[in-house]
Computed example of a mutant assay.
Amino acid sequence: MKKMNLALSLIALVVLSGCGDKPKSEVVTYKYTPDQVYKETCLHCHGPKGEGVAEKKGPALTKQSVQELEMSLFDIKNGGLGQSTATEHDVMEHNMKKLAEKGYDYDIKMMANYIHNTFNVTK
């Protein structure tokens, strides 16, 4: 089932990647770095080392590939478009809207690379 969701997420990511491209001259800037976003918003549920916090139902991030992290972050930021409607990210999708309103938005690729390079134990 997880492989099926992963495959469907990849397909959706490829199909949607060309949709709504911003003009090349427009540069998106973010208020906070991925490190700041993680420490201020993610650490509470995913732990200081990405190990996960069972009490908060925050999964470990330490063994996920960059691609898996990108798909999860894409899914969270886009309301579950990358997975089925019964997404495991329902709570985070709701939280992401609130975090973005507070300026804690981020670039998916940059955030995935930050998490992977900082916490991945399978390097």
Rank of each mutant, 00 (worst) to 15 (best):
G50L: 12
H94N: 15
Q83D: 08
N95E: 03
K39S: 02
V37T: 09
M110A: 14
S9W: 00
T62F: 07
Q67S: 12
K57T: 04
D105L: 08
G20S: 11
T122C: 07
P59H: 05
K49V: 03
H89C: 06
T33P: 08
S17H: 08
K24S: 13
V91A: 14
P48N: 06
E93M: 15
P59E: 11
G47V: 00
V121I: 05
T62S: 09
A54C: 11
K31F: 10
K3H: 06
Q67H: 11
I76E: 02
M4Q: 15
A60K: 12
K123H: 08
D90W: 05
S72Q: 14
M111E: 01
C42L: 06
L8H: 08
G79R: 06
N78E: 04
Q36M: 10
Y30S: 13
H44D: 04
K56F: 01
D75Y: 00
H44F: 06
V66R: 08
L10R: 05
N113V: 12
T62H: 11
K57W: 03
T85G: 12
K24Y: 10
G20A: 02
Q64G: 09
Q64R: 14
L13V: 02
G47F: 01
T29I: 13
K31Q: 15
A86M: 12
K102F: 02
T62N: 13
M1E: 15
E88V: 14
E70W: 00
Y106N: 03
K98E: 05
K102I: 01
H46I: 03
S72L: 09
I11D: 10
L6M: 14
H44I: 10
E40T: 06
S25E: 14
K97R: 05
G20D: 12
Y32T: 04
K3W: 04
E40C: 05
L69E: 13
G50D: 08
T62Y: 08
E40Y: 13
K98Y: 04
E40I: 07
Q36C: 05
D21W: 10
K56A: 11
T62L: 11
Y106F: 05
H46G: 08
Y114H: 05
T33G: 11
Q67T: 14
